[in-house]
Design a protein around this nucleic acid. Structure first.
Lengths: 158, 158
DNA sequence: TCGTAAAAGCAGATTATTTGCGTTAATAGG
DNA sequence: CCTATTAACGCAAATAATCTGCTTTTACGA
């Protein structure tokens, strides 16, 4: 179901699978894109904390690589697109917030360890944003590239 | 026309304005999203070279601020969304290529002046990606933030 | 000028969307 | 426990969008 082509999935079809009338869905969501966005946000919600790899840099590297992997996969791309295609901006906002929280956990852990760790917003700008931008605009971000992004943000001093 | 809510614009409506039959449009583009994506790409094509402000940093700053302004406006957001919502990834790819070229011009100019200037891909990662990410995922990127992004990428030494 | 192929119009069939109305399910107050 | 109220749902008819087969027009090279 989640892996069908977006051109083939329709509200009557979903209604059929869900055992409800199409009008129910139309009334609750208005159109297909809002529904898909809601579903995608749910699936994008992190189900666990970032793995503790011993140091802030290792944590961030591990997290970023897995994140890039998941988001650049077929289903991952679809979910991001679904979230962005909806009119309501709240869904997209939520997704960014999920990510912020995950990085926040890593940052907090680093702080407890007494390490220096960049500001969460800076990580959003220098690691998350490039990964997502390249996924959305055509590139497949290589593991190597992700590692470089992390190295760069971790070595910044200003 | 370009400023109508996406929920209200339909293919029969466009066909009417264009003086053609809906079936003509259905055959050429398949669905509304592909059509909107094509239109958006056309409107996103830069119509001039980045302004020469005297130095690489000034050039990039001026360009980035204008870019952020345009893209975060209502119509700008719509166009980006239209490009990303289409199935065909080629449109999104083209947009990133436009941006790359504009930055390439700035970089080339700086090189001719004998200045040091960061790699185009690095500017994409550290300036363009954060701007677009924040526009897409809810934030309105302030001028101040854009200036910081540029300052950061221009001061990077590695 | 003619022949060919691609594109456009047209109209009917199909499918999706909207809407009004009656019914059911959930819940709060007696 | 019962009932009133409200929100959600099902149903079905009306409307609108989408798809398709076929015909006609247009563009272009022989």
């Amino acid at each position: 179901m989640a892996e069908m082509s977006r051109a083939d999935v329709t509200i009557p079809l979903i209604a059929g699978k869900a055992g409800v009338t199409p009008s129910t869905i139309y009334r609750r969501w208005g159109d297909l894109q809002e529904l898909l966005a809601d579903v995608a946000v749910d699936r994008l919600r992190p189900d666990m904390e970032p793995i503790d790899a011993g140091s802030g840099k290792a944590d961030l590297e591990a997290w970023a690589e897995q994140y890039a992997e998941e988001m650049s996969s077929g289903p991952g791309r679809e979910m991001i697109r679904d979230v962005l295609a909806a009119q309501a901006g709240a869904n997209a906002c939520k997704c960014a917030e999920f990510t912020r929280q995950q990085i926040g956990v890593i940052a907090e852990r680093a702080k407890v360890r007494g390490e220096v760790f960049p500001d969460v917003e800076r990580v959003m700008d220098q690691v998350v944003a490039p990964i997502i931008y390249r996924i959305l605009f055509g590139d497949v971000p290589a593991t190597r590239r992700v590692r470089d992004l992390v190295a760069r943000v971790m070595s910044a001093t200003d």
